[in-house]
Design a protein around this nucleic acid. Sequence first.
DNA 1: ATAGGGTTAG
Length: 562
Amino acid sequence: MLQEEGTGSAPLLCKLLFSSFKSWDSSNVVWDMLAFIYSRFGMVHDALFVLVKMKEQNLRPSIQTYNSLLYNLRHTDIMWDVYNDIKDSGAPQSARTSSIIVDGLCGQSRFQDAVFFLRQNDGKEFAPSVVSFNTIISRSCKLGLADVAKSFFCMMLKYGILPDTYSYNILIHGLIVAGSMEEALELTDDMEKQGLQPDMVTYKIIAKGFHLLSLMSGAREIIQKMLTDEKVKPDLVTYTILICGHCQMGNIEEALRLRRDLLSSEAVRLYKKLRDKAITPSVVTFNSLIYGFCKNRKVVEARRLLDTIKLHGLEPSAVTYTTLMNAYCEEGNINKLHELLLEMNLKGIEPTLVTYTVVIKGLCKQRKVEESVQLLEDMHAKGLAPDQITYNTIIQCFCKAKDMRKAFELLDEMLIRNLEPTPATYNILIDGLCRYGDVKDADCVLVSLQERNISLTKVAYTTMIKAHCVRGDAQRAVKVFHQMVEKGFEVSIKDYSAVINRLCKRCLTNEAKYFFCIMLSDGVTPDQEIFEMMLNAFHRAGHVHSVFELLAVMIKFGLLHD
DNA sequence: ATAGGGTTAG
């Protein structure tokens, strides 16, 4: 009835209750129920109105009603009004009350206040519960503060509260996301020592962790462990994680074998029990396989799987089409790409941000830059916000069309739209300026980015170094090279070798010599390959003296054999 | 009430 009456119906209903049930014995229960149900349906203002009316009659709401209201208002300051009401009313607080407050404060990014509240309640009638701790540990993990999460876990132990399966799973997940797989596994052992069995969630967290680290053997071991565990059985998601991992690593055969197990991820089960919950591969499972085939450049097989999906009575998703479209794009078959786009449209499957980006990539491949800009505008009109990858794709296209002005205009557009350019954005622009614009401009851009402390990758530097080498400007190449080292990027002999190779190929022997000396003074020992590159170049240039000079150096390094 | 979940684009 309350749902039908809708928000704002509280005054009317209160009036009705007041006149009809005033002398009724159970009026407290009825009023409380009214407030509770308003709260449960999210009609918080009506619930608050009922509370006011209850107060007027000296009726006391139950803690369940208070908790429900508190939960709905936990992201607002009104939470405190409700909390104070609870304290004033003398209603017995439940452990849930404080865990809602902790959750609310965390949700409002008032992390410190949550910690304070938790400590404040220690020793009181309602000491912090395991749920409150789990909430705060979870929030710490989500903020990327695994160490803080660990300290709360320890604090919980000090309070004499035993962590439950939730506590362990939350922290294990947090540690894995933070990159501490070893610690996570240690914690899993610890969990078992405490007599808590890892559950389905634990196993999946660890399987996903191994997948993220591309350690598929680890993921496989987890599944083996699940198979020996009587309480849990690997399910579709577990298998899909494994399948996806193998596909991403290009191991199609292995992935297919897994799928057969899955199918045979079912025949036995169906024989045994028709109505059993059999595991059927999902669209996501197929999408992973399609991606695997595409990655192995087996687009024909990938395309065939689209039909297999349909044969299974499943609907291909936008991801299915997009993955295939991208594969066709990669092999330059833009017609097939558009065929699939048409099929998608006919089926009424909405293109996603990624779909648009792939179509744009296809257009860029055909140098149809105006059309790709048109699609960018279509996306905005549709409310489908293009992201960095979308912009990077078109920016690269403008660079290739030697229209650096337009490329930079798009960079400005990104900034205006509050889209933070990625390091790749700058790599594309620097490369564009080096190839089709002015290397000096590229240099300026790099300096400006460094001054503004914008995060760059090593590629930005190697691109610049390459450009200076091409122009035979070894001095500038050295300058940027040392900047790259100063910025803390790891440099190996390969980086030196690449520079010397470029200079040698252009017969810039003096410049190559100069860079070679720099390398020696940097304390890097040249290898056979570098010597051969240089000897070849000196030979071609007819610099006999330099050849002998270099042979002497080779002897010094013990690299000259007869 | 607090935990996990798989796929696509540079």
